[in-house]
Design a protein around this nucleic acid. Structure first.
Length: 905
DNA sequence: GCAAGGTC
């Protein structure tokens, strides 16, 4: 038999080749050829293309919600290729399939059935009539792959594959959830908001809902301070009574109440130890992409930066596969990486003597992993510098963090004593502390900062006695929706994989249509996001339980206990119920200020029909008179940037979407800026000027005749001809450069990495010397003095207004987001922008640099608000090697000290 | 224009 082995991606194909000894060969007497897809090659076509011709207008309509919910029986569930590249990949798979007898679906074994859906999509597009086998490898080691091939299942009967059906149902459910975006847009317009589009779904909407409600809870938080007597020993250990709302007699609303109580307690109350228990803790689970991002977000990196850098490192084999659902690894994965541990430890500066636990602990191991948890890859770099050179500071941080989380697995347990004590004269006052005995894995990786509650305090032993003091507390303030907060929350909902969640957060926090944005390390909603969140309040689509229900049903399908066909229709029940709720939510929008870049739509009657169209066209905003004329079916003339356009309102089509809008019928270009002429018999318009050069009459003749012309511009000489080009997807005619000769006096020319580059000889006021030019071309850095101070930089390809050019690039301050650079006492210095969770405002920074004392309200780790005073000062600390490190930073002052400084000011 | 799931 001849087999076609279909992998999900090229990376896995390579693992198969390694296991089977080549792309083609024989296995168990069968000839095989391995091919790889590239994720999903196909996707469900647009709604309007899924239905019969008579239903098309209904499914293409965005202005009407009478059609919702959709009838999913109308759908043909037709797949289309996502891109031309995907079609090409398919063609290569198809070619390979022609002489084969059976296909082996060797796509990933996701518990969601996604790999099965992906595989069958391709098999179905091949119109395959032969045998189909499914293999599910435990890991991507040769052993795992070969074992899976020896245990293949006959899967020829596609609709008897429960896991596939579960995946297929999920896909249709989510696809049908598109209705929500149309519905919400309709209601937004009812509330007189006109966003270009909204994006609702069971993941996106849950994120928005959580941020909305959390922000609301914070805004509505009312601090209720309380005061009570507690004891503290000389090591800072606190003794307190257990608090019970019903029987409480010791908590006061005012300080004076507690002050009166304080008299009842004596100083130096003797500490009695009740119990000392030896305890231990195993290293934490390996990091997933979400938890990794939490650690990196603290340093100011965005999900997008983390995802792209991790991906690049994965492609180089330095880190493991990013988009895994696994939090554990197989014994095979473990054995594979273990021999590399000493080298990894060297790279990240971890002492090898700590790596004594060479047997895998049960908690890390599973029998079957999709790719295994995120961990260092099999390509171990030689040094951190090597990583940072290629992947920047973030790359280095990713590797260090991931490596330490992995190496922690090979360390011994963390051991500590849990000690309980009470006070002799006041036995109600108790304390429980954890005192470290042996750090074990915690010496290299401390997971406590990943937890929502950083309650893993490590204490020092009790001292002999404790004295009373007045403790000021408050009802806890709801947590800020930071990245950590959001990731930990989504973890609990279980929607998607950690990587999917991260990429969705990235997706909705970037670009013009962003729904959320990070401000001072806290997520908040954009105008668009707020609009969506309010419209979806109390709706099922924004309910975290919706995904849970979906997954529960999918699990039943997997066990043959439910019919997969019932799942997609559930979204329709939701749409029906949420339609009413959303309609009611419109009123909630009325009292909310929403800042949004709005696309204004005009609504009115055209030939007796309700229409909505954009008020702007080509930068021109229709006046009310023009709107009346358009609705009356008249032709109007408007001015746009490049000339005068006449046209009228018309039903038009863009891709598969019908819409109403102004349709240009005739355009007269401004003669001053445009030339109108005939090119190959076609009327063309192009700009009279290019790069500051105004074309002469003879040049215009030559251009229209298709000839190459040559003229001088600033910095050199260009040659080129007239050609049709594209700008932002729209075609235009204009001069197109074919060759540029650079003026040697202005530009330096040379080779950089095998590419000819030209760059300006001058940067600021500095003229590069011949030596400096050579250094720059060799990739070296050059530094020189300017009026603003010393500048150091390298040669780099840069972008300006969308055009790329080569030039000197000054070294940007490391992490400008986290550090402030400024002049302090006549010197350029850097200092941290955040102190104790507080991010200094621009005004505060200016005051600090001016040497002034500033004060601000802040919240401490116990969620208690207090006023912090301080100023900028040169400070120092001793690092682990005992070396004194000097630095500038905010120096906290007591209120008394601050007042004294302020007096001097 | 709209999802969530893959891929790089």
């Amino acid at each position: 038999m001849k087999l076609l082995i279909l992998c999900e991606k090229p990376d896995v194909k390579r693992k198969f080749e390694k296991a089977l000894g080549g792309t083609t060969g024989f296995f168990n007497g069968n000839y095989f050829q391995i091919v790889a897809s590239h994720g999903h090659l196909l996707t469900l076509d647009e709604p309007a293309n899924q239905v019969s011709a008579s239903l098309k207008p209904k499914y293409a309509d965005w202005s009407n919600i009478n059609y919702l919910p959709w009838n999913l029986n109308d759908f043909s569930w037709k797949n289309v290729f996502k891109t031309d590249n995907d079609r090409a990949t398919f063609n290569y798979i198809e070619q390979a399939s022609f002489d084969k007898d059976a296909i082996v679906i060797a796509t990933d074994n996701d518990p969601s059935g996604e790999g099965d859906v992906l595989g069958w999509e391709i098999v179905n597009a091949l119109d395959w009539k032969g045998k189909v086998y499914r293999i599910r490898f435990a890991d991507e080691t040769p052993k795992g792959i070969i074992k899976s091939l020896n245990n293949w299942e006959d899967a020829t009967e596609q609709f008897k594959q429960p896991i596939y059906l579960a995946g297929l149902a999920r896909q249709r459910f989510d696809y049908a959830s598109m209705q929500y975006s149309r519905m919400a847009l309709y209601f937004a317009r009812q509330a007189h908001h006109s966003p270009a589009t909204l994006r609702l779904g069971r993941l996106k909407s849950v994120i928005l809902n959580k941020i909305y409600l959390q922000t609301k809870a914070i805004n509505e938080y009312v601090k209720k301070p309380f005061y009570e007597v507690r004891f503290k020993d000389s090591n800072g250990n606190i003794f307190k009574r257990s608090f019970d709302e019903a029987t409480d007699m010791f908590r006061f609303n005012s300080r004076t109440g507690a002050e009166k109580d304080l008299i009842n307690y004596v100083q130096n109350n003797v500490v009695i130890i009740d119990e000392t228990k030896g305890k231990s803790k195993q290293p934490p689970a390996l990091l997933d992409l979400g938890r990794l991002s939490v650690l990196l977000a603290k340093k100011g990196y965005t999900p997008k930066q983390i995802l792209t850098t991790y991906q690049r490192m994965y492609e180089a084999g330095i880190v493991s596969y990013p988009r895994t659902a696994d939090t554990k690894i197989t014994q095979g994965n473990f054995d594979e990486l273990l021999p590399l541990a000493p080298k990894i430890a060297d790279v990240v500066g971890v002492s090898k003597s700590l790596l004594t636990h060479k047997l895998s602990r049960k908690k890390f191991i599973i029998t079957k992993a999709d790719h295994g948890a995120n961990r260092p890859g099999l390509n171990v770099p030689n040094s951190l510098t090597e990583i940072s050179a290629k992947y920047g500071a973030l790359g280095q941080l990713i590797y260090e963090t991931l490596a330490k989380s992995y190496l922690a697995m090979l360390c011994e347990d963390y051991e500590y004593d849990q000690i309980k004590a009470h006070l002799n004269l006041n036995p109600d006052f108790k304390s429980e502390i954890n005192v470290p005995k042996k750090l074990g894995y915690k010496a290299i990786f401390d997971e406590s900062s990943l937890n929502d509650d950083d309650d893993e305090e490590q204490n020092t032993l009790f001292s002999n006695s404790a004295s009373p003091f007045i403790f000021e507390g408050a009802n806890p303030k709801p947590k800020l929706p930071t990245h950590k907060f959001l990731i930990n929350y989504l973890d609990k909902t279980g929607i998607g994989t950690a990587a999917t969640r991260l990429s969705t957060i990235s997706d909705i926090s970037e670009g013009d249509r962003a729904l959320i944005q990070l401000k001072k390390r806290v997520y908040c909603l954009t105008g668009l996001g707020k609009l969506q969140a309010i419209l979806s309040l109390d709706c099922k689509i924004a309910d975290e339980k919706t995904s849970k229900k979906l997954f529960d049903l999918m699990n039943l399908v997997k066990k043959n206990q439910a019919n997969w066909k019932d799942i997609p229709n559930l979204i329709n029940d939701m749409v029906l119920a949420d339609k009413e709720i959303m309609q009611r939510n419109i009123t909630k929008l009325k009292n909310v200020r929403i800042n949004m870049k709005e696309v204004e739509y005009i609504t009115g009657k055209f030939n007796g029909q309700d229409v909505a169209f954009k008020r702007e066209w080509g930068g021109h905003k229709f006046t009310d008179t023009e709107v009346q004329a358009l609705l009356a079916g008249q032709s109007i003339k408007i001015r746009v940037k490049s000339g005068e356009v006449s046209g009228r309102l018309a039903r038009q089509q863009y891709n598969d979407t019908l819409f109403w809008g102004f349709k240009a019928e005739e355009k007269i270009y401004d003669e001053k800026t445009y030339i109108t002429g005939k090119f190959n018999g076609q009327e063309v318009h192009f700009k009279r000027e290019w790069g500051g050069h105004k074309f002469t009459d003879s040049e215009i003749q030559a251009l229209l005749a298709g000839q190459v012309i040559k003229f001088s511009v600033k910095g050199g000489e260009v040659s080129g001809k007239l050609d049709q080009q594209q700008y932002k997807g729209k075609p235009f005619w204009g001069f197109k450069v074919e060759d540029k000769k650079y003026d040697e006096a202005v530009y330096a020319t040379g080779m950089y990495d095998g590419e000819e580059v030209h760059f300006k000889r001058v940067w600021g006021n500095h003229i590069f010397t011949t030596n400096e030019i050579q250094t720059l071309l060799a990739g070296g850095s050059v530094s020189f003095d300017t009026a603003k101070g010393n500048v150091k930089g390298i040669l780099a390809k840069q972008k300006y207004k969308g055009k790329s050019f080569w030039g000197f690039k000054p070294e940007i301050d490391i992490d400008p987001d986290n550090y402030v650079t400024g002049k302090f006492r006549g010197k350029i210095i850097k200092f941290k922008r955040v102190w104790g969770g507080h991010r200094f405002t621009d005004e505060e920074i200016a005051a600090l640099l001016a040497g002034k004392v500033i004060s601000f309200r802040n919240i401490n780790d116990f969620q208690v608000e207090y006023t912090a005073h301080g100023k900028l000062a040169k400070q120092s600390f001793k690092n682990s090697e005992g070396k004194t490190i000097n630095y500038y930073g905010f120096k906290f002052l007591t209120p008394e000290a601050a007042a004294e400084f302020k007096l001097k000011e």
